[in-house]
Amino acid sequence: MSVEDRYFDGLYAGNDDPWAFRQRWYEQRKRAITLAALPRPHYRAIFEPGCANGELSAELARRCDRLLCCDTAAAAVKLAQTRLSLFDHAHVEQSRLPQDWPQEKFDLIVFSEIGYYLDSADLTAVIRHMENSLTADGQLLACHWRPPIEGCPLNARQVHDRIHEVLGLPRLVLHQEADFILEIWSREPRSVAALEGLR
């Protein structure tokens, strides 16, 4: 069974930054690596499910023409809306995955730190949604904490293996450390250098 909403609601009870996104160097560094790993400087439309309080979202907003974010926790949605209030092209919704999936197309989906909260069936459904939501040149970035998380149905390796298996797209980026794994798959298989005519 996927982790229930009450777990996330509890995390935000009296705490506007339950994962210490703003304070911890680990989180700041991971955001920087995530942004540096993106193969393109700018995207037309980005979707970030599980946006939490919007710390990464604010950085993604600077890299796109339209940003859609969502989270299952009402408190997180309000925090992210406040964080993104300066960006007219950013929108935050409250939704539960996989059922509340947007109908739009995106050239980047950022699936960060949420895959292991889903059970196997829900994760597969989300991957199918992501596959159907990617544009003809769309990309998917996934990033997850590698150590086990108590109460989560899956771990990072299981999440990324399932994405690779179900999505079936070329992988452009693989970055792995003791703490996290980050991968990018793309419908445009050429590397950054190849696209610039360097190889």
Rank of each mutant, 00 (worst) to 15 (best):
K30M: 09
E104C: 01
I33M: 11
K105A: 12
N53G: 00
D122W: 00
G151V: 10
F106H: 04
D88Y: 00
R157T: 14
C69F: 09
G54D: 08
I163N: 03
D5H: 02
R40I: 05
Y12T: 10
R199Y: 14
L86C: 11
E48P: 05
L60V: 09
P148Y: 00
S120K: 09
E59R: 08
R24F: 12
Q158C: 02
G14W: 09
D107A: 01
F111Y: 11
M130C: 11
T82Y: 10
L182V: 08
P98R: 00
A121N: 04
L35Y: 07
R22Y: 10
N53S: 11
E104Y: 00
V173C: 05
R199Q: 13
L174R: 13
N53K: 07
D179S: 14
G151E: 08
A80P: 08
R63F: 04
F21H: 13
L38N: 03
A142M: 06
A52W: 01
R157C: 01
L38F: 03
R40S: 11
C143L: 14
F106G: 03
P147L: 06
I163D: 04
H89F: 05
P170K: 01
L182I: 09
L198I: 13
L35Q: 05
F87T: 10
D161R: 12
P147I: 05
W19K: 09
E27Y: 07
R44T: 14
R29W: 14
T124G: 00
E165G: 00
G168R: 06
A74D: 12
E113H: 01
L169S: 07
L60T: 07
W25I: 15
V110N: 03
R199N: 14
E183I: 03
A20D: 15
T72W: 00
E165H: 13
L182G: 02
I114D: 01
N155K: 07
V92P: 03
F106V: 05
T135S: 13
Y12K: 06
L38G: 05
A36V: 02
V173T: 13
H129F: 06
G197N: 08
Q23F: 11
L35P: 10
A193G: 10
E177S: 15
A74F: 06
Y116N: 06
Y12C: 09
L123V: 08
H175M: 01
L67D: 07
Y26G: 04
E177Q: 09
